[in-house]
């Protein structure tokens, strides 16, 4: 039972991380990116390549994912949003869909459609060493995933609350024009925010890639959509909402295995999302503003 809960939380923390990145981007740019799942995939592969070809260090893998997805995020912001700021929102949305398709196809070309895995001898130290907490055993890997996820979330909150840049981002989220009038370089803020949100997706990608030790080009599709659902359930622009909803979906999914056909497990997030859209479109924590890290 407790082990199941840990499994659920681990899975959920990944959803939460992804949803958080999505939420930050939406909160500031008022735009949805549909390439988030693919950024996640890129993060996973970056970690995979570094781990298998350079050095088998999880930390280095995460750093690799951070760098690639941050840069990718910045590029996407410039192409999909900055250049299209005056165009209808739909145009930006289409460009992000274009990115999602292109990234998947590039991954297919480079890595092929087969599922790749890190060789056992490299990962066994992480995956099979367990520590005992009371009655249950938890693997190092599981612990690392949870640990890193919690660390990133905490760092994000602190960043938004205390750093200068974080404050500028929050100001921009509340009112683009007012922020501009106050001397904030809004264009830079948008790019940084997008890069930052993408980076969180990238980290989530590394973590889940290592957790299951499965890497394939379409690995981000389902996860990206579940992260959307989590973000919608949480309230699209609410950071705590994204985290709570992400964890909730993870836990419910793990426990649902006893009740529903495992292949329908993936539906849970969407059913939740539709229910929320019907009952409370603004989401559990929603208000429309980037919430949760405000100083007040």
């Amino acid at each position: 039972m407790f082990e199941q809960l840990i499994n659920g939380l681990t899975q959920g923390s990944i959803y939460a991380l992804l949803a958080l990145g999505f939420t930050i981007i939406f909160g500031v740019l008022r735009m949805v990116t549909f390439a988030h799942g693919e950024v996640f995939m890129v993060g996973a592969y970056s970690g995979f390549v570094v781990f298998t070809h350079l050095q088998d260090s999880l930390v280095l893998a995460i750093v690799a994912a951070v760098v690639t997805t941050f840069l990718l995020g910045a590029l996407m912001e410039i192409v999909a949003f900055r250049r299209l700021r005056d165009a209808p929102h739909f145009s930006s949305l289409l460009v992000t869909i274009g990115f999602s398709v292109v990234l998947t196809q590039l991954a297919l070309l480079i890595f092929g459609a087969e599922v790749e895995a890190i060789p056992m001898r490299q990962i066994e130290g992480l995956a099979f060493s367990e520590i005992r907490i009371g009655e249950v055993y938890v693997s190092y890997l599981q612990l690392s995933v949870l640990g890193v996820a919690i660390l990133i979330m905490a760092a994000t909150f602190l960043f938004f609350k205390y750093s200068r840049l974080g404050t500028a981002i929050r100001a921009t989220a509340q009112d683009h024009e007012a922020a501009m009038a106050m001397g904030v370089d809004v264009n830079r803020i948008f790019t940084v925010t997008f890069a930052f949100g993408s980076m969180m997706g990238g980290i989530a990608g590394v973590l889940i890639g290592f957790y299951y030790n499965l890497f394939y080009p379409t690995m981000g599709v389902m996860l990206g959509l579940k992260a959307f659902s989590a973000a919608v359930i949480g309230g699209l622009a609410s950071m705590p909402g994204a985290i709570v909803a992400g964890l909730m979906i993870g836990v419910v999914e793990v426990f649902s295995v006893d009740f529903v056909n495992s292949s329908f497990r993936h539906l849970i997030a969407f059913v939740f999302m539709f229910a929320i859209l019907l009952i409370r479109p603004q989401g559990l924590f929603g208000s429309g503003q980037l919430r949760g890290a405000r100083g007040d």
């Binding site: 192409v79 999909a80 299209l84 165009a87 460009v95 274009g98 999602s100 398709v101 292109v102 070309l109």
Partner: peptide, 16 residues
Amino acid sequence: MLLYGLVLIIIMQVRP
């Protein structure tokens, strides 16, 4: 599919 993806990105830049 790569072509379709690129069409989405490029068309929006040059002729939205």
